[in-house]
């Protein structure tokens, strides 16, 4: 565990706490893509099924349990308690265009031909594009609550921090994970546009608004 990865994980943890805070404070799930949140549940369940078969560390196990349970809780908040504040009519990204290609990629690229390993690959590919429905929604509405942009920034920072972590691991341990690294670079690249607006507007105290 190096500092890049540790702060990356902390940023991921923070993003979920910010998300829960946003829902609680505004008593609304407005501006959040249910599709993106449902994709994250799929990602975590597919990847962390190994929590029952592999033991890495207490930290690893606790984080896995947290990510699975918190993402399921967010889905419940969106479809249960705060359902009236959810607007599916602006959440129109076609997730089948993500699920199909990711399943195909996982069948082609994996480390071992076993159910859990192919599922692991699938989850890595799916995570890299899971934010697209949310970014698409942002693009469509052209604006976002500041707290929602902090959530996205923390999530993007988590991905960005994993990149120096991999460089460090390659240098210090001489190991590389081509599937995770390739998908991770793609995932981080998807945030570049968002980060540009976040740094030039939100962090200067302005509202997150895209040019018409």
């Amino acid at each position: 565990m190096n500092l890049f990865r540790f702060f990356g994980d902390m940023s991921h943890l923070a993003s979920i706490l910010i998300l829960l805070y946003k829902i609680h404070a505004t008593r609304s799930v407005r501006g959040l893509s249910f599709k993106t949140q449902a994709l994250y549940v799929t990602v975590f369940v597919a990847r962390y099924l190994d929590v029952f078969t592999e033991f890495v560390s207490v930290y690893n196990t606790l984080m896995k349990i947290f990510f699975i349970s918190s993402s399921c809780f967010v889905l419940y908040l969106m479809k249960g308690r705060y359902r009236p504040t959810n607007d599916p009519s602006i959440d129109t990204f076609r997730v089948e265009y993500l699920l199909g290609p990711c399943a195909l990629l996982a069948l082609i690229f994996h480390y071992r031909w076993s159910f859990l390993e192919v599922l692991w690959s699938f989850s890595i590919f799916l995570e890299s594009v899971a934010i697209l429905p949310q970014l698409f929604m942002l693009q469509r509405t052209g604006e976002a609550e500041t707290i929602t942009t902090h959530y996205l920034a923390a999530l993007g920072a988590y991905r960005a921090l994993y990149i120096p972590n991999w460089i460090y691991r390659y240098w210090s341990e001489d190991v590389i994970d081509p599937i995770a690294v390739t998908a991770g670079i793609v995932q981080t690249a998807l945030y570049l546009d968002f980060f540009y607006v976040y740094f030039t507007k939100v962090l200067q105290g302005q509202k997150f608004e895209l040019p018409a």
Partner: peptide, 10 residues
């Protein structure tokens, strides 16, 4: 090892 990738990551 390399074969399994970084399975210790989240």
């Amino acid at each position: 090892g390399t074969e399994d990738g970084h399975k210790d990551e989240l």
